[in-house]
Design a protein around this nucleic acid. Structure first.
Lengths: 167, 167
DNA sequence: GTTGTTATTGAAAACCATTTTCATAAGGAA
DNA sequence: TTCCTTATGAAAATGGTTTTCAATAACAAC
C-alpha cells in the first residue's frame, strides 16, 4: 500500500484511510464491502465543492484508478444514496448530480441557486436558520394533515447569473 | 366546426374555444400558430389536478385526436414551458411532469409533497403564505448577494404516504 | 375562397443518461 | 490460503426525450 500523507500525530495514513472515515465505517456497518472504487468515489465527493454528475465523478476517479468503470460509479452512487451518505439532485439539465450528505459536524443543508442559462449552481447557507424553522413547522403540519412520514425536502431557486443576463 | 357546448350567455363555443382562453391568446401573442395539437394539450392540462407526464398527456390527447403524435406533445410542452404557461417538474422518477402555471386569477403556487414509495404527488397550499413571505425575503437576499435574477423557485417534501409506510 | 409562405407536424431514427446482463474478479471471514 | 459471496467491467438493453426530414396545415394577403 502506498503511503500518501501524514497530517496528524496518529499513524501514517494510506490512500484507503484519508478523508471520509465515518463514511467508510457506515458502508461497512451496513454490511457492504469496502472496495477501491467505492473509496475513490467517496474521495472525489469529499474533496469537491462542485455538484458533480456521475460522469464527472467517473472522470475524476478514472484519473487515479483507470480500472474503475462508469457502471461501478453509478452502482456506488446508488448505494451511497440508499444508505443516506449522499444526496442525489436534479437541476433540470437531464443528468443527476451528487453531493455528500453530511460533514463531520453533522447534517448539512443543501439549498441551491441554479442558473438556467449556464447551469452554474451555488450552494447557499444564507437564511438557512429561518428556512429550517419554517420547514420544520411545515413538515409537521403536512405530516399530520396528509399522513406522510417526511424524510427529506428540497429548496431550489432558479434564475440567471450575472454573466448570462448580459447576453 | 363541431359545436360542443354552450355554458354561458355568450355565443356558442367550439372545441377550439373552451377552457384556457388566456393561454391561447398568449400562444398567438408570442407569434406562434394555434393548432389542434397545441389546443388539445392545453385542454388536457387545464382539466386535470394530476401531475401528468408527457406520455400521460399524449394518451389523453390521443383519445380525442388520434392524429396528434407524441413528438408534437413534447414540442408543445416545450413551447408552453418556454413562454411561461406551463411549469415542468422533476420528482425523481425519471420522467418530467407538467402543470399549468397559472389560473385565471393569476400565479398559483406549486409546492409538492412526493411519496418516494408509490410516486403519489400532493399539491399543498397549507403554509403557503408563510412560505411565500420567506421565499420573497430569501429571494431578495440571494439576488443581491449572488447577483442572480431569480425567476422561479421550487419547494418539495419527500416522504412515505400512509399506504407505503404499512409495507 | 384561393394562393403562397412558413411554421408545424408525424414517423422513424438518433440520442444519451442510466440500468441490466453475465461471466470474471476480488473482499474478507474462517 | 481457501471458499463463498459480493462486486465488478464491458457490452447490450432500456426508456424518456430530441432530431431529422419530407409532408402538411395555419393564416395573412389577395
Amino acid at each position: 500500500m502506498k503511503m500518501v500523507f501524514n497530517n496528524n500525530r496518529g499513524p501514517m495514513k494510506t490512500e484507503f484511510e484519508k478523508g471520509h472515515h465515518w463514511c467508510r465505517h457506515r458502508v461497512k456497518g451496513c454490511g457492504f464491502r469496502m472496495t477501491i472504487g467505492r473509496d475513490a468515489v467517496l474521495d472525489v465527493l469529499s474533496n469537491t465543492e462542485d455538484h458533480l454528475s456521475a460522469e464527472d465523478i467517473y472522470m475524476r476517479v478514472h484519473e487515479t484508478y483507470p480500472s474503475v468503470g462508469l457502471t461501478s460509479v453509478y452502482r456506488t452512487l446508488d448505494l451511497l444514496v440508499n444508505i443516506g451518505l449522499v444526496y442525489k439532485f436534479d437541476f433540470g439539465d437531464g443528468r443527476a448530480r451528487y453531493e455528500l450528505a453530511e460533514g463531520p459536524r453533522g447534517k448539512d443543508h443543501h439549498h441551491h441557486l441554479v442558473c438556467t442559462g449556464c447551469g452554474r449552481i451555488v450552494n447557499y447557507r444564507d437564511f438557512i436558520d429561518e428556512e429550517v424553522a419554517l420547514l420544520k413547522k411545515t413538515e409537521e403540519g403536512l405530516s399530520k394533515k396528509y399522513n406522510f412520514a417526511i424524510t427529506n425536502h428540497l429548496i431550489q431557486f432558479y434564475g440567471l447569473c450575472e454573466g448570462c443576463r448580459k447576453q
